[in-house]
């Protein structure tokens, strides 16, 4: 226990880096007016390569600390204000994605995260994909990048919350 506490003090408190964003910031209306200051986010991987998932996971690390903004990832769409969708939508995931969207209580919003979710990305529509997220459910905002950096995703949430 002594070693554990010592390591905590050795690590200290970290803050996210401040720097100009290379990626396009999210487009879309401020969500705070509709959803309030605390956001529950449900993530759906609709066929991504796992790159975007890694960056969403990174948002939870002590540096980006998304929870400190009032944004938390939840386990069920029934608890969610926002559906955060990644990947080109595969045919097999189109129905589960629609079901997750339908299960959310209103008011609800959808964010397409990453170039694939935004516009099918490198994958382009083919026999196995139905297209971008916007081809399946209504999208309110997009976060570009392959994958978008945690800074860009965090900045997008800050912008959407009007912070």
């Amino acid at each position: 226990m002594y070693k554990l506490i010592r390591q905590i003090f050795r690590t200290g408190i970290r803050h996210p880096p401040r720097r100009v964003l290379a990626e396009t910031p999210a487009q879309g209306p401020t969500l705070a007016a509709a959803l309030g200051r605390s956001l529950a986010v449900r993530h759906v991987d609709a066929g991504s390569c796992n790159g975007c998932e890694l960056e969403i996971q990174a948002l939870g690390n002590a540096l980006y600390n998304l929870a400190a903004l009032g944004v938390r990832l939840v386990a069920s769409p029934r608890h969610a204000d926002i559906l955060l969708v990644t990947g080109p939508v595969s045919r097999a995931m189109a129905d589960p994605l629609r079901a997750a969207y339908a299960a959310m209580p209103a008011p609800k919003r959808v964010l397409a995260l990453g170039d694939c979710a935004r516009g099918c990305g490198i994958y382009t529509a083919n026999y196995a994909t139905v297209g971008a997220v916007g081809d399946v459910i209504p999208v309110d905002g997009v976060i570009a990048g392959c994958p978008p950096s945690p800074e860009a995703i965090r900045a997008a949430f800050i912008a959407l919350l009007g912070l």
């Binding site: 066929g47 991504s48 595969s90 045919r91 097999a92 382009t124 083919n126 196995a128």
Partner: peptide, 9 residues
């Protein structure tokens, strides 16, 4: 579920 037709592409 994540089949995206990579080989066809």
């Amino acid at each position: 579920y994540a089949h995206k037709g990579v080989e066809k592409r």
